[in-house]
Design a protein around this nucleic acid. Structure first.
Lengths: 247, 247
DNA sequence: CTGTAATCTTTATGA
DNA sequence: TCATAAAGATTACAG
């Protein structure tokens, strides 16, 4: 089920270590090497990454180089990302910078400048992050279908209606969305389920459905049976309608 | 640069270690301890922090707890911050979770959810970050830290029927249980809501309800109005029934 | 979050 | 037409 699609990113030509690592992931992600002026890695037109190794991060704070770079990044891309690589004890202790100053800058970048900070342990992890982000942006499965079961706080009406529908059996975000888009309100959905009949074969096996839901794909007799039982307490209809059918 | 003004934050009453550390910084920052439902530390009405220790971070990804918390944080505050504390090798290696999954979640939170992630090495560093942020936010204005708190809600997979009902507005497990016990099936509940009328005063203001739900306590016109809108798309009835009432 | 297993629907095929 | 098999899609669950 994983992405069969091959991801593609652009990497600054000086990032040799990173390219070496990505070469080992050829099957899932490819790259082209260019001279980039405002970022180190470009995922899409909207998403780009600046990568900073721990020591360089700190020293670039001191000479104001970092903020220039990040501001340009922010101006150029809608989703600017800073990967903070290996910001560990060694870095904190071996630079002349005060710890509180480092965190001050980091806080500023993250929540005031609005740059997405992602910490990684090393460059291998950085490669993983790049692959994950590329997969989300290029893997086609973005959007927002991941709105399943969260607390019923402040949702939009549509979200809330889907949320109600998701309480049914054998239904997830996808089918819930389908139903709400066709029937608008939960009540209409329930009514549709109520008025859907299960068709049986002559020998008494369930075959298909008939009624409101038969136009939609993805809803069969099993769905109808289970949820009629839950919603209305309907019993499984005993298939004995063949009495005057034969002779 | 540092103000002499004393900073003030609100800290969840369970954060005992953090409070101990902040006690040592009494000269620059004070706090009050409250029961907070949506954040761990509140800086201002706009800025609040969720603090997650490494191991808890990972395990809260798995059970979807983290995303609920962060979504609520984002809905409640304009500047939601996640302090990621001590996400080190030990955490990465001692959880059954795949590294790519951890980074996938982290990336999602940071650049897709728009939550500001700030990594720290330990809780002492976390205290530093809190102090820096408080200083930036409060370092010039008088404090305004009062904040309403939102109800936390944990959806346990109880009875399926109550679960469905809980998707409604202004309803929790208790009211859901009441309704299911009286009406047995969700469909009957919805029908009851449908057939409940809102009574208006002569001046057109909603007064009370009439119909199936009027026997139960805890269900008023507001409940009926909101949920009729969600369930059936009913518009607020314009109270013009007084036409032949006068003459 | 990610990946895999388990279910269900639908299409295809043979009796 | 019915019954079974295979394929495609979605949901449920574990790590």
């Amino acid at each position: 089920m994983s992405q069969n699609k091959i991801l593609h990113v652009i990497i600054d030509h000086r990032e040799n270590k990173l390219k070496t690592i990505l070469d080992k992931k050829k099957d899932t992600i490819t790259y082209e090497s260019k001279q980039l002026d405002v970022a180190d890695i470009v995922i899409t037109n909207d998403v780009a990454i600046e990568r900073k190794e721990g020591f360089d991060f700190v020293s670039s704070i001191m000479d104001n180089r970092l903020f220039d770079q990040l501001l340009r990044l922010k101006e150029t891309y809608d989703y600017p990302i800073l990967i903070l690589e290996g910001l560990n004890d060694e870095v904190f202790e071996n630079t002349g910078m005060k710890i509180s100053s480092i965190y001050g800058a980091l806080s500023f970048i993250s929540y005031k400048l609005g740059i997405s900070v992602i910490p990684t342990r090393n460059i291998e992890d950085t490669a993983i992050v790049i692959e994950r982000i590329a997969n989300r942006e290029q893997g086609g499965k973005d959007g927002m279908p991941i709105l399943s079961r969260k607390a019923p706080k402040e949702m939009s009406k549509k979200e809330r209606r889907s949320f109600i529908i998701e309480g049914l059996e054998d239904i997830g975000p996808k089918k819930a969305k389908t139903l709400i888009e066709k029937y608008k309100t939960p009540y209409q959905v329930f009514k549709a389920i109520r008025h859907t009949e299960i068709l049986y074969t002559r020998t008494g096996n369930p075959k298909s459905i008939q009624g409101p839901l038969e136009d939609l794909t993805g809803f069969g007799w099993k769905f109808v049976e289970k949820n009629q039982k839950i919603l209305f307490g309907k019993k499984k209809k005993s298939p004995q309608k063949k009495i005057n059918d034969k002779y």
